[in-house]
Design a protein around this nucleic acid. Structure first.
Length: 602
RNA sequence: GGGACUGUAGUUCAACUGGUUAGAGCACCGCCCUGUCACGGCGGAAGUUGCGGGUUCGAAUCCCGUCAGUCCCGCCA
């Protein structure tokens, strides 16, 4: 049916007879000669028809419209010297159409233009409704091809260089406590019982280690029933890996090799070797977040000790209650950041308050070395404090110092947000530059105030650092996250492989022995039969592709994504099902639909 | 659950502070054009301004509600 792809015909094919299939990208009708840009997934080639050289096809060529699917047969011809198109790889040649067959015309007006020559954006709502048309467009073709190349590179590397096996794990599995909300699937055969879709293949990959498949990977679909974001979909894809008999450093080294290969092959980016590391504590202290964007400086400075006894109650009170006072130095901020923006009602104030901050104090460093600030702070600035403050923040004349005071997590959250906003605004981020680093030594647990209990920060199978075993509650873990330009692209840990340590962790997070046995008994039992030390990592593939494709939403890296309301605009999923189906599953919905029309309510 | 933004022709956008018949590019339809490649020229058709209500002499514009989409918080590794 086809001899060549449109975008792959070259000068070497001159005089050859070719048969091409594709979509009409655009038609240029000059009255006496018609040009058709024929498009397939490889590119575009120019088809020509005129009444003298191709009298048979000329009338048909006139009738063609955008997005018709056609087959064209003709000879590869050199273009006239004055009509070359350097913008196209096929720009030196063209096909005189000796035969054109319309395989399918377009029956309805297109909801939007497909050709990339139409540079206007299209509403995402419309793109998602007609996703099959959107996927024909240049941008999505490029993104999905890039996604394929990423996966291909990963497979080649892990299989050919590192001897990994790809093994599939179940999608119908059991619900587990901890972590995200599960998607549930009723079992018809076992009425009243439910499968859960996996949040990740975590337990299975650990079992595979116990089974001796000491290097496993999978491009795994995962499901989490939580609210969506630009970088979060209810179903998403992980590159999931697990390996046995490897230390944390060895696992990280292997993954550095993998990521270096991916970034090199896909984008020509040479990642640093080795990839820098930072502990969780350093990251929180200096950047206020566990995924610091280190493309620019503006590090946070802790000044709690300077203000703990001062008369400014907002500062001293915060410290007295166990909180902190930290400074975000804004280079040149005096000229660029007005007081209006820092005070209530301003955008920076709002940014801070959305992170939980009650206020946003500031000091401006003037040309003559004077400090300009509100009276309540000025009164409490002794010469000693002033000197130390300027020394620690390395503030220069013209700089702005923004203060966060309160609970440490809120101070960190608000200042780290301001840091990103201002770093971008002040042009401190070089778009050519990228930053990548490992964040290590996460705490094992985090206090969940709502549930009044400790919670696994990573997940409950993460191994504590051996030197911290004495007090699990405050122990650090052998966990590591890979952070690229302030985005987490992967994370993993060395796992617990000793049953007694696993039991201690379950008890620390308040999981009763009975509960733990009920939910994870199979894993704990498996540890009794010769479990190798093991560890692994999982990457958010959609997010990794998003970064490599310079996109801002993972929806643009997924062929058929959901909207923020977790709907598929193309298929209309989710949707109601027949009562018969529900009955078969012994399922009854308790949902009471809102009044269909307002009149009924009146 | 909460906050913010958006919704005007098939589509991308415009329409001053509420004021006469809601405009333009592309697409679509017709005519013309033999070297274009975002071809060009002339003409035409195309609108429940998301939907419902309200204020007003008068609403795309103001108010309330609602639906959909996006971004964010909560939630989520």
């Amino acid at each position: 049916m086809r001899t060549h792809y449109c975008g792959e015909v070259r000068t070497e094919d001159l005089d050859q007879r070719v048969v091409l299939n594709g979509w009409v990208d655009r038609r240029r009708d000059h009255g006496g000669v018609i040009f058709i840009d024929l498009r397939d997934r490889t590119g575009i080639i120019q088809i020509v028809s005129d009444p003298e050289r191709t009298p048979k096809t000329y009338p048909l060529a006139e009738s063609l419209r955008n997005e018709y699917v056609i087959q064209v047969e003709g000879r590869v011809t050199k273009r006239p010297a004055e009509s070359l198109n350097p913008k196209l790889p096929t720009g030196t040649i063209e096909i005189y159409a000796e035969r054109i067959e319309v395989l399918n015309p377009v029956h309805q007006q297109l909801p939007f233009q497909v050709s990339k020559t139409d540079t206007d954006g299209v509403r995402e709502e419309l793109r998602l409704k007609y996703r099959y048309l959107d996927l024909r467009r240049d941008r999505m073709q490029a993104n999905l091809k890039l996604r394929h190349e990423v996966v291909k590179t990963i497979r080649r590397y892990l299989e050919d260089q590192e001897n990994f096996l790809e093994i599939e794990t179940p999608v119908l599995t059991r619900s587990t406590p901890e972590g995200a909300r599960d998607f549930l699937v009723p079992s018809r055969v076992n009425p009243g019982e439910w499968f859960a879709l996996p949040q990740s293949p975590q337990l299975f990959k650990q079992l595979l280690m116990i089974s001796g498949y000491d290097r496993y990977y999978q491009i795994a679909r995962c499901f989490r029933d939580e609210d969506l974001r630009a970088d979060r979909q209810p179903e998403f894809t992980q590159l999931d890996m697990e390996m046995s008999f490897m230390s944390q450093d060895e696992i990280m080294d292997l993954n550095e090799g993998l990521m270096r290969q991916v970034f090199k092959v896909i984008r020509g980016i040479d990642l640093p070797h080795p990839i820098p590391r930072m502990t969780y504590q350093e990251a929180m202290d200096q950047y206020g977040t566990d995924r610091p964007d280190t493309r620019f400086s503006m590090k946070l400075v802790n000044v709690s000790d300077l203000f703990k006894d001062c008369g400014f109650k907002v500062f001293s009170g915060a410290i007295a209650q166990g909180g902190a006072v930290k400074v975000l130095p804004v280079p040149g901020g005096n000229a660029k950041v007005s007081n209006v923006r820092i005070k209530p009602g301003g955008d920076l104030f709002r940014e801070a308050s959305e992170a939980g901050a009650r206020g946003l104090a500031y000091i401006r460093v003037r040309e003559n070395g004077d400090l300009d600030t509100i009276g309540a702070i000025k009164e409490n600035l002794t010469p000693e404090i002033t000197q130390e403050l300027l020394a620690r923040t390395q503030a220069q004349a013209g700089d702005l110092l923004l203060f966060g005071a309160g609970a440490t997590n809120i101070v960190n959250a608000s200042l780290s947000r301001l840091r990103l906003v201002l770093g971008e605004e002040l042009g401190l981020i070089d778009p050519q530059h990228s930053s990548i680093l490992w964040v290590t030594d996460f705490p094992m647990f985090e206090w969940n105030a709502e549930e009044q209990r400790l919670e696994a920060l990573h997940h409950p199978f993460t191994a504590p650092k051996p030197e911290d075993l004495a007090d699990l509650k405050t122990a650090r873990s052998q966990a590591y996250d890979l952070v690229y330009n302030g985005l987490e692209i992967g994370g993993g840990s060395v796992r617990i492989h000793q049953p007694q340590v696993q039991k201690q962790v379950f008890s620390t997070i308040g999981l009763s022995e009975a509960e733990a046995h009920n939910k994870f008994g199979f894993l704990v039992e498996a540890f009794n039969y010769g479990a190798p030390p093991h560890g692994g990592i999982a990457y958010g593939l959609d997010r990794l592709v998003m970064i490599l494709a310079d996109e801002e939403s993972i929806r643009d890296t997924i062929a058929f994504p959901k909207t923020q309301q977790a709907r598929c605009l193309l298929t209309g999923a989710p949707a109601k099902v027949d009562d018969r189906q529900l009955k078969e599953l012994e399922v009854v919905s308790t949902y009471v639909a809102d009044q269909e029309s307002p009149e009924q309510g009146l």
